[in-house]
Design a protein around this nucleic acid. Sequence first.
DNA 1: ATCATATATATGATTTTTCATATATACAAG
DNA 2: CTTGTATATATGAAAAATCATATATATGAT
Lengths: 114, 114
Amino acid sequence: MQAIDFYKALSDDTRLRCLLLLQQQGELCVCEFIEALELSQPKISRHLALLKKQNLVVTRKQGQWVFYSINNELPLWCLSTIKLTLENQLDYIQNNVTLLEAMGDRPSRKQLCC
Amino acid sequence: MQAIDFYKALSDDTRLRCLLLLQQQGELCVCEFIEALELSQPKISRHLALLKKQNLVVTRKQGQWVFYSINNELPLWCLSTIKLTLENQLDYIQNNVTLLEAMGDRPSRKQLCC
DNA sequence: ATCATATATATGATTTTTCATATATACAAG
DNA sequence: CTTGTATATATGAAAAATCATATATATGAT
């Protein structure tokens, strides 16, 4: 992972919020991002696609939903940076978290293992 | 310092190299960046001005030269991120360091203190 | 006048956004 | 089991916005 690509991925408001939400929440699907960020579906999908292309996130498909989470095989310095950023920028996503928690009918997560 | 502004500042090749060089070298003037990055003077000046506007770097004027260094009053998480990036991306600026060290007539630094 | 640096403006390139549409799954009625 | 319809997500293409670069010019020190 080249630093310049990593920072370009983080340098957009939508992508940064998505990543920090994932760091905090673990796993989220597209419709949850739409509610939490109050943005259009194509806009969210596009930015998530970009994060995926850079291998910052991975996806898991469950029925009609696609769940995104941070790729835990990223270099340690990338994972550390994301973690450090969240710890110091909780205010930045506070409103998004509130919206997410207020969301009705959130899709249920199947257990990942047996 | 907002994370988004910090990452936008880092998300350009020229600015990232400048910052990492400063992290490693401590203090550099515009003419040294020109040699190390092999870029035009206005291009360097413009990017340094941007870093200064975001308070990532500070300047010290000495005669005809302007020396840039990382603003050590930045939030710790920013300083840590820059440090961590350099440690993991030494290759990225290796060629720039070589060019810098090969530079003739580098301006002398006055002692900063008594 | 010369050297080092900064800035204004115009142009080109890249990125982001939007709209329309496509695909894939789900679910209910016949 | 098919047909129709709704929901979730992705993507192509065009428009809009942002960002980077080059050239020319300005400032300030020696």
